[in-house]
Design a protein around this nucleic acid. Structure first.
Length: 853
RNA sequence: GGGUGAGUAGCUUAGUGGUAGAGCAUUCGGCUUACAUCCGAAAGGUCGCAGGUUCGAUCCCUGCCUCACCCACCA
């Protein structure tokens, strides 16, 4: 046997162990075997490097994979990356900006070339980081949402939806940035407060308020809540004529429940073309809509004398004109409202209506709702089910195209110069390949989530009826953060349910088409002060730095140790990683100790006890992992190994015990720990002469039966040792001095003598100091070093405790008299027992007190 | 504004309708057949605030305060 160094140095082993795993093929599921365990790695955005959230997520998945692999299930963890079009687009445009260029300067082709280079570079970095963490992914099946086969899947999905009439071209409000000449997705919008003048105008009989008078040219609807009594006299559909900016307008009264009667006058006019809420109202009541501001941010001819002006320039002039007409009622100069700007470039967002592609959710949502309601897909923690369903019930049609260059081009072909015109209808063909004739491809790309929605099956070879798809779909669990529950999870579900309906996939049952059986929502990693981890705030923590400093295992275990079930945040504390590093070292040294221990076979009741404890922990750990309670599992194992195994069992073993048993339990411990800390356990496993690798070894079986009587004996023994140790510290008796101890029934006297450093007396002597033991028993000690002064202090303390207990008993007795006749019998009985127990304990204490006088 | 979660020892937190548990930090004592990244011990908490239900509440209910996240974006 090799002699191991005193301290575990992860850097020396981790890369080597990972290489061995990879070479052994352990990450690839065996060709045969039933009941596979499958996880699709949520593809990280290739926009940079991994953060703590990924480290947490990847650790969780790796634990699940390794645990299930050890259970003997064919285990597939399929990795890959996402092109993250919007985010990557942003990065690339920023790079161009640095060079003083725009994407239009270099052209679409060159832009895509740069994207490929970027993907290549960052994609490799991400994979490297996952490997450092020990992720047991099947790299032979790695996928990228932009690889050729995946692009086919995306096209196929689009064509399928279109053929079924689920994709349509419609008008909708988009976030338009006139400055950058592009639409901006909702997540790229930066909302912030701005102070602006807030004008109240007279509009017929009504007063309406706005911070944006320049949009008001076309306003011809006044809207109010149907229940607003102030306006009960006006009926829905009433019309009237009133003076407005450029002369009289014909206005119509509209009643709509979206109006808040308590806000301002409870009346507003609407501008459907440039406001989302107004657009919705117009949709509901089928109202006219008119464009006021063009795509360059200038007023259109409807503004008459103001046409062609920028809004900034026009606003004060419009207000002046209305004031001159006597229609300006009031100006609030300090009005604070939220303004939307483009994240990048800070251009002011001007909502505009334009033609976009939509996926009809009304027809797709029902099955999705059904599988979640019926628990065919289960959420952990369960509260996410409600969130999810609420959202699904209110889902809107999905705008699936984006006006950027990066991403999957739509498989849509327009007759030359028809796209974006007023006569689009019938001028396009939906097909994978360019049709013959003068056609050009739609310039837009699909929303990133459209391709991501296909991830659970496109990665397995869909649209082909591939072997992998047949064997590994549906997957076992989706592990993800809650912020993409709607963006991604919902879309994977309906995509899977819909797109696997084809006969070639042989999945007639709905439960065969779900993409995953469980959804585990993990907490967000925040910094120690509860702030979001971000580079700009300087609150980010780089997992690689932690791995370099403390090792991969410590990083993983420290993160898991901080997890708690169904909590939404982890306040990351580096101390937890330090503790985990120390824990790894502890395991290392237990191994060292066992290796150098000469064989001995003198089993004690501690040997049986540690076997029972170990088996119980194995059982519980499995159950906890099954329930995604990783924090509890980590803490359970930690306590078991450190407290039970090292502090008690091994300490006893030094005096007496079975070394073979000690090694066998330690081997089980390595298995138990492996999913959490794979590297060190694999290294030690091989140090202990195991030929097969731990990664593919079976999960240990729990064989022993519980024995409460024996457990009690152990607890009592531990209590006696603890009492003597406490007394030693309390009385200031130095560790080298042997104390005389009398215990009425001393089990395992030689171990007791040694552990507590006591000399056991057969009979109690006079003038011994009595000590209360948990459980109501009393033991007695004597030593030359027991001074009067010290005893007096101890007495004081005992007195306090006695008083506390007396009060407790009194309180409980009082409450007993009050509850008589009201509470069920078993509660009364339990209470009586509680009181009896504490009274017995109290009696012992009083005896001890008397002896201490 | 709507929703969700959290507020327990200096810090990170576990937990239960019946005298509140741990780790780190602190203090004291220890190089004891592996480990000082260790061992033993101690101290430290009106369990966010105010009500209510109960014989009894840190736990259940209501309200409030603080923090975080998600959704919405207000004329």
């Amino acid at each position: 046997m090799l002699s191991l160094p005193k301290q575990y140095n992860p850097a020396e082993y981790e890369a080597e162990v990972y290489r061995k795993w990879e070479e052994s093929g352990a990450f690839t599921p065996p060709k045969n075997g039933n009941n596979p365990y499958v996880i699709m790695l949520p593809p990280p955005n290739i926009t940079g490097t991994l953060h703590m959230g990924h480290a947490l997520q990847d650790t969780i998945m790796d634990i699940l994979m390794r645990y299930n692999r050890m259970l003997g299930r064919p285990a597939l963890w399929l990795p890959g990356t996402d092109h993250a079009a919007i985010a990557t687009n942003k990065v690339l445009e920023e790079q161009l900006h640095q060079e003083g260029k725009t994407r239009y300067d270099i052209g679409r082709e060159e832009f895509m070339k740069r994207a490929d280079e970027w993907y290549d570079k960052t994609g490799k970095a991400i994979i490297n980081q996952m490997k450092r963490l020990g992720a047991s992914c099947d790299w032979s099946r790695e996928r990228f949402t932009m690889d050729t086969k995946y692009v086919q899947a995306v096209n196929k999905a689009f064509i399928h939806y279109y053929a079924k009439g689920l994709i349509y071209r419609g008008r909708r409000l988009v976030n338009w940035d006139p400055k950058s000449q592009t639409t901006v997705s909702d997540i790229e919008i930066d909302w912030h407060e701005e102070t602006a003048p807030y004008y109240t105008f007279q509009y017929g009989h009504f007063q309406i308020s706005t911070a944006r008078p320049e949009t008001k040219f076309g306003d011809k609807y006044v809207v109010m809540h149907p229940d607003d009594k102030r306006y009960a006299q006006y009926k829905h559909g009433d019309t009237f004529t009133c003076e407005w900016i450029n002369g009289p307008v014909n206005a119509t009264v509209i009643k709509d429940e979206s109006i808040d009667p308590s806000f301002g006058t409870g009346v507003m006019t609407i501008t459907p073309w440039h406001d989302a809420t107004d657009f919705d109202i117009a949709e509901r009541h089928n109202l006219d809509r008119e464009q006021i501001i063009d795509f360059n941010g200038k007023l259109m001819p409807i503004a008459a004398e103001f046409a062609g002006m920028d809004i900034e320039e026009a606003r004060p002039k419009i207000v002046a004109k209305l004031a001159k007409k006597g229609l300006l009622v009031h100006v609030n100069a300090n009005y604070v409202h939220n303004v939307a700007r483009n994240d990048r470039g800070k251009g002011l967002i001007e909502p505009q209506i334009s033609r976009q592609w939509f996926l009809n959710m009304q027809k797709l949502k029902d099955e999705t709702i059904a599988v979640v309601e019926d628990d065919l897909i289960r959420f952990y923690g369960p509260r996410w089910k409600k969130h999810f369903l609420d959202w699904m019930h209110n889902i809107r049609d999905w705008n699936i195209n984006r006006q950027i260059w990066l991403g999957h081009r739509l498989p849509v072909w327009w007759k030359k110069d028809t796209h974006g015109t007023d006569h689009e209808e019938g001028n396009f063909i939906v097909a994978e390949d360019k049709p013959a004739g003068d056609y050009e491809q739609d310039p837009d790309v699909l929303d990133t989530w459209f391709s991501a929605a296909l991830w659970p099956f496109a990665t397995l070879g869909w649209p082909d009826a591939a072997d992998d798809l047949h064997r590994f779909y549906p997957t076992s669990v989706l592990v993800t953060a809650r912020d993409i529950l709607y963006l991604w999870v919902a879309r994977m579900i309906f995509s899977g349910l819909e797109l696997l309906k084809g006969e070639e996939y042989q999945r007639p049952q709905i439960e065969q088409r779900i993409p995953f059986k469980d959804v585990f929502i993990h907490p967000t990693v925040l910094d120690k002060n509860g702030r979001r981890m971000s580079k700009s705030l300087g609150t980010g923590v780089d997992p690689l730095k932690l791995i370099n400093k403390y090792g991969s295992d410590a990083t993983r275990f420290g993160l898991m140790y901080q997890m708690s079930y169904d909590n939404q945040a982890i306040k990351f504390d580096e101390n937890a990683i330090v503790s985990a590093r120390n824990f790894a070292n502890k395991i290392w040294n237990l191994a060292r100790f066992l290796q150098n221990l000469p064989s001995r076979d003198e089993a004690t009741i501690f040997d049986q006890w540690i076997n029972r404890r170990c088996d119980a922990v194995i059982k519980q750990t499995g159950e906890l992992i099954d329930q995604y309670r990783f924090g509890e599992a980590a803490r359970l194992i930690y306590d078991f190994i450190w407290k039970d195994y090292a502090d008690w069992y091994v300490e006893v073993l030094k005096i007496k015990g079975s070394t073979a048993n000690a090694r066998s339990v330690f081997t089980k411990i390595l298995s138990l720990l492996h999913p959490f800390v794979p590297h060190i356990t694999e290294v030690l496993w091989q140090q202990f002469g195991n030929k097969d690798m731990l990664i593919t070894s079976p999960w240990p079986e729990a064989k022993t039966k519980p024995d409460q009587k024996a457990d009690k004996k152990i607890t009592r023994f531990q209590n006696i040792v603890a009492a003597v140790r406490s007394a030693r510290a309390l009385f200031g008796i130095s560790p080298s001095v042997t104390i005389d101890l009398y215990v009425s029934d001393a089990i395992m006297p030689e171990i007791l003598s040694s552990l507590a450093k006591v000399s056991l007396l057969k009979k109690a002597r006079e003038n011994m100091t009595k000590l209360p033991l948990a459980g109501g028993e009393t033991i007695a000690i004597a030593s030359d070093e027991l001074t009067d002064d010290v005893i007096r202090q101890a007495r004081q303390k005992l007195l306090q405790e006695t008083t506390k207990l007396e009060q407790f008993v009194k309180r409980q007795s009082e409450s007993l008299t009050q509850m008589k006749g009201k509470a069920p019998k078993e509660i009364v009985t339990a209470k009586k027992r509680l009181i009896a127990d504490s009274q017995a304990k109290l009696k012992e204490m009083i005896v001890s007190k008397a002896l201490l006088q």
